[in-house]
Design a protein around this nucleic acid. Structure first.
Lengths: 215, 215
DNA sequence: AATTTCACTAAACGTATGTTCAATCAATTG
DNA sequence: CAATTGATTGAACATACGTTTAGTGAAATT
């Protein structure tokens, strides 16, 4: 049954370019995220996704022509969500590197952003990155821009905050590694992961490196 | 064709407990590592593994009853190789934490240990870790013991080296994160990964934290 | 009201793939 | 030499799964 008005669908078609309404596409993507997180990419089937979305298997291929396209759309969505959260944190800081670094850490461990399912999906694509170049490009580019942001902020704080003795690149790389390492705990511990402790540990490093700005 | 003497096989049977000679099992495992690295876990088939090993598909299931068993054996092998390299580095240092930390870093980026295929395999299993508890246990436990080793060595160096102002746990976590982050570069850059630069960056952190011992 | 378009279903299709199995070949044993 | 055992093959089997397609109902368009 077509549950949504056609004019809305037509309008959206112009914006998107694929088949189906945005709402249904979204439901499928959400279901796919859940299945990938639960069963892994190797055990993810269109039937499982369809069942979780409460639709027939054929509808999934109606909205996403190929399974590959669905998986890529999932990766894009998760990637976009992470990226958007990062940008919001930086922009919200209004040019203040101290606020930006703190906001980045907070955003990274915000349960609304890095919920266990999304984290599992992210690692799932990392796991196939060596096999599928397109996956490596996506996950790799997010990682690269993350490091670039951290590097820029560290440089700024080193310049403006009087930390001339510090090597910005070394600090940025170490910070990125620490954050990713802590983030990995979400995969391991799931709902039991202590987000406050992670934020505390990330800020602890910042307070060691930039003692006059992170107390 | 049975290419190996039976008495050798019989002797080995006692030690192992599975079907087949050790040599053939080994060939299959090596082929499987290659296929997993190249095509990912989701596209790894027994036929591909068999073809790369130069045997028939049936022989693979003769030596590894189930595909799952083969994959687990691959994980165990890679895991053991990493673990053994780590232990060798620590033992070789003869109780000296400075030498041990340096050796651990060197071992981590030793091309004989962390060749791109093995790293890709490792990430492949991480990617399925959320779906298969057994994978999470294996990769997670290696990670845990790595952190535990680093923590022990940091504690020792802090005590013996006069760094009482340092928080051992914070240093160990940061170091583990930095090393893993750099290690990730092997997956991204493959053969082009600059191992010397990675070792240099890891040691740079150590020299900042323990200036009197890493110059 | 008739027609067209869209979202969807359910079944069918074909292929890929893990697994089984009877047969074979080599080597060891008695 | 005969018999047994172990390793291997290659085909057969079964099934899971991505994809296709004919058909349906509802909404929108004319």
């Amino acid at each position: 049954m077509a549950r949504h008005p056609q004019n809305a669908a037509l309008k959206l078609r112009i914006v998107r370019g694929g088949a189906g309404t945005l709402a249904r596409r979204d439901e499928i993507l959400v279901a796919a995220i859940r299945v990938i997180a639960r069963d892994g990419l190797s055990q993810t089937t269109l039937e499982k996704v369809a069942e979780l979305a409460g639709i027939s298997p054929g509808t999934v291929t109606f909205h996403f022509a190929k399974k590959d396209a669905l998986l890529l759309a999932v990766l894009d969505r998760v990637s976009d969500e992470f990226e958007r959260a990062r940008r919001a944190a930086i922009i919200g800081a209004g040019g203040d590197p101290v606020a930006a670094l703190g906001a980045l850490v907070a955003a990274t461990f915000d349960p609304a952003v890095s919920d266990p399912d999304r984290v599992a999906v992210w690692y799932a694509f990392w796991g196939e990155a060596n096999a599928r170049r397109i996956y490596l490009d996506r996950v790799g580019s997010l990682d690269k821009s993350n490091l670039a942001d951290l590097l820029g902020l560290c440089r700024q704080l080193i310049d403006e905050g009087g930390y001339a003795h510090l090597d910005a690149e070394a600090v940025a790389i170490t910070l990125a590694g620490l954050i990713e390492y802590l983030w990995q705990g979400i995969l391991v511990d799931g709902r039991r992961f202590d987000r406050r402790a992670a934020i505390r540990q990330a800020r602890a490093y910042l307070s060691v490196v930039f003692p006059r700005h992170f107390g």
